[in-house]
Amino acid sequence: MLLNKITNISKLCGLYLNKLKISTSATAFREVEDRRLMLRSMPALDEGTAGEKAIEIDSHLYEKSGLFPDLDTPNKLFNGIPYKELPIFNVRVSKNNTILTMSDSKGVIKLTRSCGIEGFKNTKKGTNIAAQATAISIASRALEKGFKTVRVRVRGLGPGRMSAIKGLQMAGLNIVSITDSTRVSWNPPRPRKQRKL
């Protein structure tokens, strides 16, 4: 009798289990179905170019103020050194890394530091914090060597663009000028194909 009942119950359980389905409500509660839609709804990545879209009334203010180089700029003295003989800080910014080199006025490299050398690995290399730390470390090395007044040349877009320059200044370097040397062409060779999202 008892044994019979147990077998009955186990049969019932088996029936019940056959009808069970695993269902989740995750798809219903998800806000966007499509991955592309989701990507589009995300905020745009910071490309490290503050002030790009800024609108200010300028023009005539800049003419007098000496913001831009002119004919006698190369011979102008900064801290006793003519502008053309100031050491150069090259900042190479990309999406995944920031490389800083210091060279003299002829382009001979004196110091090199990158976020990877600094100890930031993988995705951490391409952050503004890494760029700033790297800039501070290379700038302190430059100060040890006795370079105080420098000009900065930036190439590329990325999160480290502003913060690297800021780091150089924070370490105590006297930055005379900032130059952009991003390589831009209006008739470039065919670039690589677009990334799939």
Partner: peptide, 20 residues
Amino acid sequence: TVFVQNNDVEAACRLLNRIL
């Protein structure tokens, strides 16, 4: 090229980026 005035690097950067 933009010259830094009064040690204000950020303003110079902003100006350069705006021009670019």
